[in-house]
Simulated assay, not measured.
Amino acid sequence: MTGTDLANADELLAGSGLVALVTGGNSGIGFEIARELLARRVEVWIGARDRRKGEAAARELGSSVRVVSLDVTDPATIEAAAAEIGDLDILINNAGINPGGEDISATSVDQLRRAFETNVFGLVAVTQAFLPALERSMHPRIVNISSGTGSLAWNSGPNPQFDWERVKGGGFAYRISKTAVNAATLLAAQALGDRVKVNALAPGLRRTNLLPGMTAGGDPAEAAGGAVRLALLPDDGPSGSLWSWDGSRVPW
């Protein structure tokens, strides 16, 4: 593996015996990630703030899915989820929000706080709670669902893979929070070293609840494939990088 392209990377194994948690797994990209992991015989837990929505998603995915009540902004539910799930091999930090707002002049500090509460602080809190279980695993993997719009390299000038002129300065709260997710991914990978592989995924623009009413964007299932590749990396796979859904590396 070159470390610059995961499109043709071998998967760790069929998945049998592995246990995964997908936060925000009841809809959108998280739902499709759960579906693909199940197809690879991974035991999947979906974390949902609304238990009824989680159970509805589980019924659609199949009886082998398990649901755990998990609000990434609520320490009590995080602690309870970690206790209920027990052993864990794969953590997909997928839960996220877009609190609205445009550029810095049209985004409130409250919107910024809400973005960080879920997208950054929640991600870190969940990761910390499950680290003891992950470090007991033979093949621990963390995948943080980020965004190419959080890449400082892509945001700093025209790029053929990024519509810089259309989005520059906009999505202030959401994009800053995803830049922080990228930093958290890199620093966590450095701290955990060979013990746990930590990577981030830029899923591309998708039709999800993140942008209600949006008709543009691709199929969430397409992005889910990229997350699953990172979740099932072989033991010689990379750590501490941001990857596009298509398997190419994205600059920080």
Results as ranks from 00 to 15, higher is better:
residue 107 T to Q: 02
residue 107 T to L: 03
residue 108 S to F: 03
residue 109 V to N: 06
residue 110 D to L: 10
residue 110 D to A: 12
residue 110 D to G: 06
residue 112 L to H: 05
residue 112 L to Y: 12
residue 115 A to H: 12
residue 116 F to P: 08
residue 117 E to N: 15
residue 118 T to E: 10
residue 119 N to C: 13
residue 120 V to I: 11
residue 121 F to C: 03
residue 122 G to Q: 11
residue 125 A to N: 13
residue 129 A to W: 08
residue 131 L to G: 06
residue 132 P to N: 11
residue 133 A to I: 02
residue 134 L to H: 11
residue 136 R to V: 09
residue 137 S to A: 15
residue 137 S to Y: 11
residue 137 S to H: 11
residue 137 S to K: 03
residue 139 H to I: 08
residue 140 P to A: 14
residue 141 R to D: 04
residue 142 I to Q: 14
residue 142 I to P: 08
residue 143 V to R: 07
residue 143 V to A: 08
residue 145 I to V: 15
residue 145 I to D: 07
residue 145 I to G: 05
residue 146 S to L: 01
residue 146 S to Y: 05
residue 146 S to M: 00
residue 146 S to H: 00
residue 148 G to W: 00
residue 148 G to Y: 01
residue 149 T to Q: 03
residue 151 S to Y: 07
residue 152 L to M: 12
residue 153 A to G: 04
residue 154 W to G: 01
residue 156 S to A: 15
residue 158 P to K: 11
residue 162 F to R: 01
residue 162 F to Q: 01
residue 162 F to L: 01
residue 163 D to T: 01
residue 164 W to Y: 13
residue 165 E to P: 00
residue 165 E to C: 00
residue 165 E to Q: 13
residue 166 R to M: 03
residue 167 V to D: 05
residue 167 V to I: 14
residue 169 G to F: 07
residue 169 G to M: 05
residue 170 G to Q: 14
residue 170 G to I: 01
residue 177 S to E: 09
residue 177 S to D: 14
residue 178 K to S: 04
residue 181 V to R: 12
residue 183 A to L: 12
residue 183 A to Q: 14
residue 183 A to M: 15
residue 184 A to V: 15
residue 185 T to K: 08
residue 185 T to M: 10
residue 187 L to C: 08
residue 188 A to W: 14
residue 190 Q to V: 13
residue 190 Q to G: 07
residue 191 A to R: 15
residue 193 G to S: 03
residue 193 G to P: 07
residue 194 D to N: 10
residue 194 D to K: 15
residue 195 R to S: 13
residue 197 K to L: 11
residue 198 V to D: 06
residue 200 A to F: 05
residue 203 P to N: 04
residue 203 P to K: 00
residue 205 L to P: 00
residue 206 R to Q: 15
residue 206 R to V: 13
residue 207 R to G: 04
residue 208 T to G: 06
residue 210 L to R: 04
residue 210 L to W: 00
residue 210 L to N: 10
residue 212 P to I: 11
residue 213 G to A: 08
residue 214 M to D: 13
residue 214 M to Y: 08
residue 217 G to W: 04
residue 220 P to W: 02
residue 222 E to C: 00
residue 223 A to S: 15
residue 225 G to A: 10
residue 226 G to H: 02
residue 227 A to L: 02
residue 227 A to H: 01
residue 228 V to T: 04
residue 229 R to N: 09
residue 229 R to S: 12
residue 229 R to V: 12
residue 230 L to V: 02
residue 231 A to S: 04
residue 232 L to M: 13
residue 232 L to H: 12
residue 234 P to M: 05
residue 234 P to I: 04
residue 235 D to Y: 01
residue 235 D to L: 11
residue 236 D to H: 14
residue 237 G to I: 05
residue 238 P to E: 09
residue 238 P to R: 05
residue 238 P to N: 02
residue 238 P to Q: 06
residue 240 G to Q: 03
residue 240 G to D: 11
residue 240 G to E: 07
residue 242 L to W: 12
residue 242 L to D: 05
residue 243 W to F: 07
residue 243 W to G: 12
residue 245 W to R: 14
residue 246 D to R: 08
residue 246 D to H: 12
residue 247 G to V: 10
residue 249 R to L: 14
